[in-house]
Structures are given as C-alpha cells and as structure tokens.
C-alpha cells in the first residue's frame, strides 16, 4: 500500500532522510520510531506530499505521490502533530467539508459522520464551534475526519497528543479495526508503549537512516521493556 523507494531528502549539505526504503502492506500498523531530529517528520511530510524528495519516490497504492499527487491523496489520510482546523466552523461542518473534499455520497457522509463521531465520542460536541474544543477534542475531531472516508493509508504524526486515557483507548480500538479492514497505518510516536500495543511492524530511524525494520513480535517478544532496550541500543 505504501512504498518508499530510496527516499532521500537533503537540505543544503544536510541529509535529513538518507536512502530510505520500506513497504507497508494493507492491514499493517507500522510504527515509525526514532529520536528527535532523526527524520521522522520529514519522511511523513514527503508521504503527505508536503515536501518533495531530493531523490527516490513515494508510492501510495501504486501511484507516485509526487507525480500524481491529487490521485495519491485520494487514498491517504494525514494527521499532523499540529493539525489545522477551521476554528469558526462547528465539528459537524468540518467533517462535512472533509467529506465533500473526498467526494463522499450523501449516504456515505451521513454514515461516516455518525460512526466516527460516535466512536470518538464527539456526538454531543458536533454542533459546537471548534474554537470551543479542548486540545483532546480537537485531536479526536481530526482523527475522526481522517478515518471518516475509509482511507487505504493513514499517516499519523504523534496520535496521542492531548488525548485522555479514554480517547487513547478509542483511538487504539479504531486503528486496529481499520487495519483489520485492510487500511495500512503509518504512525510515528515517542510512546514506545503505544507502539508496542498497536503496531504489527516497527521501523527505527536514526540520523535519516533506517536502522531497523521488522515485525513487532521479533523485536519485543517479551514486552515493551525489550522494545525500549532495543530502541535505545539502536538509537544511541
């Protein structure tokens, strides 16, 4: 579903992402881990077509994201670490806007808004303006908007920002369900416990290079402690 082929991004003489290649298949929850400044956000921004790679390519369901960005983005949902929301719109209006952009039918829109707002416990807040939402509510809204159109690939940068324990649990359940239905999930997080709980595969990046790529069961068969140990070993 997601294919990164020799992806490289240079800023002047500095190489932020260095010859990164990986595949994320449908139904996989891929945890992209690494210390600050390792190149995670740059990689994600290239996947979301916000940055163009210096060399290499990003393919989403076989479509080159930088050759046919509009087509590639039809299959993609991107949740940035600092999402943009129209403050003056209500939650429902924002979801309707996103549904229109993804050209959902009236039925699909109704169903999508109903299900996602129920899943993320947004229903009582839907008619309120986004400016009145708390940080956690905003995060739930943006996650609901991302899941509403059943994307083939979801890319999430730090999904747990501002979520309370219940919201976090809802997120995990929703993401697992989406993966079971064939969605590929690419997420970055600094919370190794989250990665251990939800990810089926994990990649570790350091100084722009992928230093590990394998199944979660391989790297931390005995629990999150082992993942943490391995992570520190590979990134220090």
């Amino acid at each position: 579903m997601l294919e990164l082929v020799s992806l490289t991004k240079k800023f002047g003489s500095f190489t932020a992402v260095d010859n990164l290649s990986l595949n994320v298949d449908a139904g996989t929850i891929f945890g992209f881990l690494g210390p600050n400044g390792a190149g995670k956000t740059t990689t994600i921004k290239m996947i979301a077509t916000l940055l163009k790679p210096t060399s290499g390519s990003v393919r989403i369901d076989g479509v080159d994201a930088h050759v046919s960005p509009e087509e590639a983005k039809r299959y993609l949902s991107y949740v940035p670490d600092q999402p943009f929301l129209y403050e003056k719109l209500s939650g429902k209006e924002f979801l309707l806007f996103v549904a229109n952009v993804y050209r959902l039918s009236v039925e699909e829109t109704k169903k999508g808004i109903g299900e996602c707002s129920a899943d993320f416990e947004l229903t009582p807040w839907l008619d309120k303006r986004i400016e009145d939402y708390s940080q956690g509510m905003r995060q739930r809204l943006i996650l609901a908007a991302a899941m509403m159109h059943s994307p083939r690939l979801v890319v999430i940068d730090e999904p747990m920002v501002g979520l309370d324990p219940k919201g976090a649990e809802t997120f995990k359940t929703r993401i697992r369900t989406a993966a079971r239905n064939g969605t590929a999930v690419f997420l970055t997080t600094h919370q190794l416990s989250l990665a251990w709980e939800v990810c089926t595969r994990v990649g570790i990046i350091r100084s722009g290079k992928l230093v590990y790529d394998g199944a979660m069961s391989e790297i931390s068969a005995d629990g999150v402690g082992e993942l943490e140990k391995k992570y520190l070993e590979l990134t220090s």
Partner: peptide, 14 residues
C-alpha cells in the same frame, strides 16, 4: 500558511 498546508494534504487540484 497552515490552511494552504492542510489543503495540500487533501485530494484537491493544486
């Protein structure tokens, strides 16, 4: 602009 960035992540013609 953050809105331009947001719109550029959606399937909208440039």
């Amino acid at each position: 602009n953050s809105e331009a960035e947001f719109l550029n992540t959606l399937p909208i013609k440039s």
